[in-house]
Nucleic acid binder design. Sequence first.
DNA 1: CCGATTGTCGCTCTATAGGCTACAATAGTA
DNA 2: TACTATTGTAGCCTATAGAGCGACAATCGG
Lengths: 248, 248
Amino acid sequence: MNATLPRRTESTSRALEKEDVLSLLKRTGLSDYEAKVYLALVLRSHGTAEDVAVTADIPRTSAYKVLEALKKKGYVNSRGGRPVVFHPIPPLEIRDRMVAEMERGFQLLDSLRGSQTEKGSPQLVYTIMGKESVMAKIGEMLDMARERFFLSSPDLTELNNVFASKFANALKRGVHVTVVALPSVKVPDASEVIRKQDLLATDVITDYEVALIATPDLSICGFTDNPFLAAHLDNFFQISLDRPEGKR
Amino acid sequence: MNATLPRRTESTSRALEKEDVLSLLKRTGLSDYEAKVYLALVLRSHGTAEDVAVTADIPRTSAYKVLEALKKKGYVNSRGGRPVVFHPIPPLEIRDRMVAEMERGFQLLDSLRGSQTEKGSPQLVYTIMGKESVMAKIGEMLDMARERFFLSSPDLTELNNVFASKFANALKRGVHVTVVALPSVKVPDASEVIRKQDLLATDVITDYEVALIATPDLSICGFTDNPFLAAHLDNFFQISLDRPEGKR
DNA sequence: CCGATTGTCGCTCTATAGGCTACAATAGTA
DNA sequence: TACTATTGTAGCCTATAGAGCGACAATCGG
């Protein structure tokens, strides 16, 4: 119908740009044809289903379906007439819409982080009661460690028995595991073992982000996922370990 | 393996939030399972393929494929070990990445707007030469009109003949068509016809956005898609039409 | 009234996601 | 060292959505 445009070979850069845009559109939820058609409409500014089919190089009858789908998704506009003339929603408008949607969605997602593991109302330091729960939490911290895992405890036997494999696994994936224990107590696999007298409580720190302090029998503990607090505790232990034994 | 979490019925609002997030993730290019798995990992903070399969409520063996796919797409992390422990990339990080990508892509797309129709280096006013090209441009403007189409010309016969159907079509889709012509000259279908002496050139304005001024024989024209310029011209014509005939 | 254009419908074909079973590899354990 | 459970991989089958295509209905211009 509209034979306005002389068909000529495209410059390579232009073709590359189109590929680029097409892959973006596809990754943002459009199908192959939908991406092609929207791009074609933007390039042409407007056009009938037929025009679009030619520009996008797709079968004519597919253009109708795809344009309909794009209209539902809010990518194109049309207002009656025969033949129907379609207009693209301006790219920047769509971008703004999608960005807004994503900001909202990912914000929500972020607020759900870890809500499957810690329960109760948000606090700086959570209290976990019961040996079973405390042990489970320590196991979780071991699994979650990416870079560094620090454990200091007067009684390692139980932790050692229950979590031996978790310790091994952490080491295997490259986590630096530090264990502080009383002299001549059996310790789990670790990259670094420190012997020290007078350990009073069990302390666990993971990746400078998550920290736990428990009573010796592990019946109750405080737990925080505040990185500043965790890093602060970590720092505290570093200092106390550097000090000569006697001076406590 | 990790039977840490007591399965309990979820609160409705929490379930709704999840639906919300899932649909967002799906619209941003993830498959059903990929969305579920990423959400599950975020909720749990970390986990093995098995853990994830349970939380996301999908078959165990599918979890491996999906986690692999998500890793390629940059949604999750893992570092060796057996079993392999996976970590989600933080939602806000992914959001930033996607937003940046979209800003870039849609910016590019925007720069391609209409590059199929106007050629040459960008200018405020393009010059179009040759009756054929000028006519084609006017036809294009008629097709593109959404709200308003304004045409003023001393010689309407040819435009009338060639574009009769386009005029009809524009009216049908609700465009307000104004035609200014010499007295007792046949005019095309229009919502408003104004008769006026002494028309010197052909002027076309579409939706206050695009404007064209051509010589009477349509052999050459100036054309702009600058909305301010177009609106300015439109305003100019309004004033000139309001003036009594004699006072020119 | 007739031919051309425009738009709709429904069918097949194909690629991909999902689901499942079997089995290989590894690790813990007797 | 052998046995068993866990973890991970491979392959195949099915369901679904997109793509391709022809038939045909609706509308329009002449």
